[in-house]
């Protein structure tokens, strides 16, 4: 892989996807990464190898990123391009994923800067070896609808539309209050279940992390009450599946399990 070595032009910008140990270059074939103009390639750091791509500086400066972040289609393209490379490399060898948009001015700079961090990379590789990341989301059941405006009110006295039946106002308020209390009970119960799930899953994880629950997109009635992610040893992955099913049955809550992921969330704090 020398003919298009990323070192050939130091005027270029180097995008770094990941740092790994003994990658198999064949897994990089066919990956488009974040640019169509040059291949995703290994860059040796000594005992470690960075997975990089040569990109045009103009396409990866601050302004270009600002525009990209404001464009959901572009953002998705780059995020998935990054993720695909990281995933392909990680499937074949121990890998430390780097965040999207880690860039250096030239291969020599990249090599130097990354080699300086070799100790951290080795420490992270040790920590995540034979582990994967699993996401767990818990959803509250949709709260009861606020029926205050939909239920037929106490029938109004016939022929007199301007004067509601006696007690209609109070009935309305009681209905409202009842719905509000039911909603609050549902939420409290959902949060309690979220805590139970987190405690139990943490029990078989090597590390855990709470992420901010996602906002409720339009049309989604469920409310996310837990968005957490766990570092789980390979040999316990099956156990996690069993536990999740058991928790679902026991609590009646909707629990989503996603994974295995390359342990992105567990490489930053060594």
């Amino acid at each position: 892989m020398t003919e298009r070595d990323p070192e050939t032009s130091d005027a270029d910008t180097i995008y770094v996807f990941a740092v790994c140990r003994d990658p198999d270059p064949s897994v990089l074939v066919g990956l488009s990464g974040v640019s169509d103009e040059s291949p995703v390639a290994p860059l040796s750091l000594g005992a470690l190898t960075a997975i990089v791509q040569r990109v045009r500086a103009g396409d990866f400066g601050e302004e270009a990123w600002e525009a990209r972040l404001a464009d959901s289609v572009e953002l998705e393209r780059y995020a998935r391009g990054h993720h695909d490379v990281v995933s392909a490399v990680a499937a074949a060898c121990p890998t430390v994923p780097l965040p999207m948009a880690t860039l250096y001015r030239g291969a020599e700079r990249a090599r130097q800067a990354l080699a300086d961090e070799a100790d951290r990379f080795h420490a992270v590789l040790g920590r995540i070896a034979r582990h994967a990341e699993w996401g767990v989301k818990v959803y509250a059941a949709p709260g009861p609808r606020d029926d205050g405006n939909q239920e037929p009110a106490v029938p109004a006295a016939s022929g007199d539309r301007s004067r509601p039946a006696p007690g209609a106002g109070l009935a309305y308020l009681n209905r409202k209050r009842g719905a509000q209390q039911r909603r609050e009970r549902c939420q409290t119960e959902a949060l309690r279940i979220a805590e139970v799930v987190d405690v139990e899953v943490s029990g078989l994880a090597a590390a855990s992390r709470r992420l901010r629950p996602h906002a409720q997109p339009p049309g989604e009635r469920r409310i996310q009450v837990l968005n957490a992610t766990y570092l789980v040893a390979e040999h316990r992955a099956e156990e996690l599946g069993v536990l999740t099913r058991a928790l679902r049955e026991r609590t009646g809550a909707q629990i989503e399990l996603s994974g295995p992921w390359v342990p992105y969330s567990f490489v930053g704090e060594v």
Partner: peptide, 28 residues
């Protein structure tokens, strides 16, 4: 490890690739 679930939703990817990797100061 595999690449993550096939039904990877964008928000799940973004919250991982944008700021959860090891912090290494890039030039840019």
């Amino acid at each position: 490890p595999v690449s993550g679930p096939q039904t990877t939703n964008l928000a799940d990817i973004l919250e991982r690739v944008l700021d959860k990797g090891i912090v290494i100061a890039g030039d840019i």
